[in-house]
C-alpha cells in the first residue's frame, strides 16, 4: 500500500508550501550503508568538512565547533551519536548545518544522497525492536524510496539532550540568585 515515490533529483524544486499539502521534502544522507532523511526546511547549508575545534569534557558525538562565517556553530557526529565510533572525517565528508529553533547546529555525515518528496502518509512507523543504530525516540518513521529504506529523523528529539542540558543550565543560572 505504500508505493515508492519518484525520487526528485532536482534540488531547486520548490518546497511544498507549509500546510497546503501534507507532504514534505527530505534531504537524505548516508552514514555507512544506512540512509537518513531530514526535512529540507531545516537545512541551512551543506558544506564540506573542515577541522573543528574540540570542546572539552564532552561525549564523543560532540565533535566541537566551527567558524561559519563568524558564527560559532557546534558540530555533532551522527555516527557517534547513534552509538558507533567517531567518524574519521576527511574533506569528502559532509556537514549539514541545520536550523533548530533559534540555533544553528551542524551534523557530520558521510555524504548527501538525495532529495525526496514525501507525503506524510508515506512515512511509516518504524517496526518495534528495530535493531538499527538510532534510538527509537529520534526516529520519525521510515520511507521507502525505490529499493532503499530511508530513516526519517526527528531533529527536535535528536537534539533534545543537548537542548535539555542547555535549558537546565539556564534554569540553574536563573535560580542561583540566593545560592
Amino acid at each position: 500500500m505504500h508505493k515508492p515515490l519518484p525520487a526528485t533529483r532536482d534540488a531547486a524544486a520548490p518546497p511544498a508550501a507549509p500546510g497546503s499539502q501534507p507532504s514534505r521534502q527530505l534531504v537524505t544522507f548516508t552514514l555507512g550503508t544506512e540512509e537518513f532523511g531530514i526535512p529540507i526546511l531545516a537545512v541551512k547549508e551543506i558544506r564540506g568538512w573542515t577541522p573543528e575545534t574540540r570542546l572539552p569534557n564532552l561525549p564523543p558525538h560532540v565533535r566541537g565547533v566551527i567558524n561559519l562565517r563568524g558564527v560559532i556553530v557546534p558540530i555533532f557526529d551522527l555516527r557517534a551519536r547513534f552509538g558507533g565510533p567517531q567518524t574519521e572525517a576527511t574533506r569528502r565528508h559532509v556537514v549539514i548545518v541545520l536550523t533548530i529553533g533559534e540555533r544553528l547546529q551542524g551534523i557530520l555525515t558521510d555524504a548527501i544522497s538525495d532529495i525526496l518528496d514525501v507525503a506524510d502518509g508515506d512515512i511509516l512507523p518504524a517496526p518495534n525492536g528495530d535493531g538499527g543504530l538510532v534510538d527509537r525516540a529520534a526516529i520519525l518513521g521510515l520511507v521507502a524510496s525505490g529499493n532503499r529504506m530511508v530513516t526519517v529523523l526527528d531533529l527536535g528529539r535528536l537534539f533534545a539532550a543537548e537542548t535539555q542540558a542547555l535549558d537546565e543550565m539556564q534554569d540553574t543560572m536563573a535560580g542561583t540568585a540566593g545560592a
Partner: peptide, 20 residues
C-alpha cells in the same frame, strides 16, 4: 548562542587562520 556554556570556557573567538 548556538550551543551552551561549558565548565572552564568563557567564550570563543576566531583566530587568524579562521579557526575557532
Amino acid at each position: 548562542a548556538h550551543y551552551r556554556r561549558l565548565d572552564g570556557i568563557a567564550a570563543a573567538t576566531i583566530l587568524g587562520d579562521g579557526r575557532v
